[in-house]
Design a protein around this nucleic acid. Structure first.
Lengths: 228, 228
DNA sequence: ACAGTGCTATGACTTGAGGTCAGATTATGG
DNA sequence: CCATAATCTGACCTCAAGTCATAGCACTGT
């Protein structure tokens, strides 16, 4: 039996892992590419530059990621996965409620941006600066992974009776995703890319007021009423 | 006097118009290009194809528009200018109020789309499917021209006391632009590009309900309160 | 140790798109 | 009907994405 099984059984594949050294290199490429995309934009970033910055051949990158689109998609996923989820806010903030969590993250955006602006810029590129075919992939990913944890966050708000129950949950999630993304993009681009969204000087000092206004609007829109 | 002036005055330039045949050709190029961009997307559209579809040389297009970006920008402007402004709604709809105008246009989007989907697709490309440098140009244009007439429309809502006065007018305009653009894009892409935004079947039958929900949300957010 | 076996890396090569320009062509003015 | 300036042309250039045969490398079993 031992003899027979030793001949018959080894079931085709040799090593399942198959990714001992590969993973490390992929990660290095993604890191370098992220910097290049963030600094140059999607179109202007050159595959050749990324390769030579790493001291490897351009062909290698294509063997790993297939195409420039494929590489950018990996970069985008890594960038977005590095962002915090709503409910990662400190416990005391979460206890203060749904809208306090929003306020916390909006106020914190600027701070996080200064720590490391690169993934934010990449996320901007994914939202507005690539082809529609890639954009479709990106949306599929965002739906599948819910990287900011919007769905559990909305469920949290519903459980605390802070959100209206007469709306589709999906509607609330969409509205939150859209408006938060857009509002944050506006805050970010004022620094990363002045003049990309709206005009007007004296932005910094008004920022807190605008956040307050925005939250007020959002609370009226999707929150349970609690004021006269 | 006549003699002297006829010698002295012809002040250097010969014909100010300078655009007798040019305008017509530019328009033809923009038309053909719009079809190509809409059908292929920005990247996949080929300058050579556009030229040969018109039976002219590729170089001509570059002499008129400088670059692919430049051509797309003109195409985008033409597409967006072809859309109706909020206050173009029939008089009886306008008299019914701010939010009825919104409902009118949202319900009508699908209809307009079927009449001629090409400019809508181009506007989608401008919003999400080009490079950030172009996106910046586009935003400058949208700010300068206000092609949907959002600013006068908001002023209309304020005058009728249908919109809150405790918000910056600019804030209301931004919110309206963002959410309407995004909601319409979602409606459009379900038909133009299924699976680009959110999931879920049975879209058509739910469309009216979603429009109603969306308007309810928007009314609470920026409208004066009028309900218990 | 060593040979065998498949991943992985290489870099010269191909493809194909945007973009250029000197010269031909065409419209306008006298 | 010639002079002049605008416009058009298409061969040409540049350069970046993407390919592929080959070389190299790490790991396994004997």
């Amino acid at each position: 039996m031992g003899g027979i099984s030793s001949i018959v059984s080894p079931p085709r594949y040799r090593r399942m892992p198959q990714r001992p050294r590969s993973e490390g290199k992929r990660a290095k490429i993604v890191d370098a590419a992220m910097r290049h995309f963030a600094e140059q934009g999607y179109q202007a970033a050159r595959m050749g530059d990324i390769a030579s910055a790493l001291g490897i051949a351009k062909g290698s990158i294509f063997q790993h990621f297939g195409s420039k689109d494929g590489l950018f998609f990996e970069v985008y996923k890594k960038a977005v996965r590095s962002f915090p989820r709503y409910l990662d806010a400190p416990a005391e903030v979460c206890e203060a409620g749904f809208f306090e969590v929003l306020r916390y993250w909006l106020a914190r955006t600027e701070h996080l941006l200064h720590e490391d602006w690169i993934p934010y810029r990449v996320s901007l590129l994914g939202n507005y600066g690539t082809d529609l075919s890639l954009k479709r992939e990106i949306n599929r990913f965002l739906l599948a992974e819910d990287p900011y944890g919007t769905v559990p966050f909305v469920r949290f708000g519903l459980e605390r009776e802070e959100l209206r129950r007469d709306l589709d949950q999906e509607m609330i999630v969409s509205i939150l995703d859209w408006t938060m993304e857009r509002f944050q993009d506006a805050l970010l681009t004022e620094e990363l890319d002045p003049g990309l969204f709206r005009r007007q000087g004296n932005v910094m000092e008004k920022k807190e007021a605008r956040i307050a206004q925005f939250l007020d609007v959002l609370r009226r829109a999707i929150g349970t009423e609690r004021r006269g």
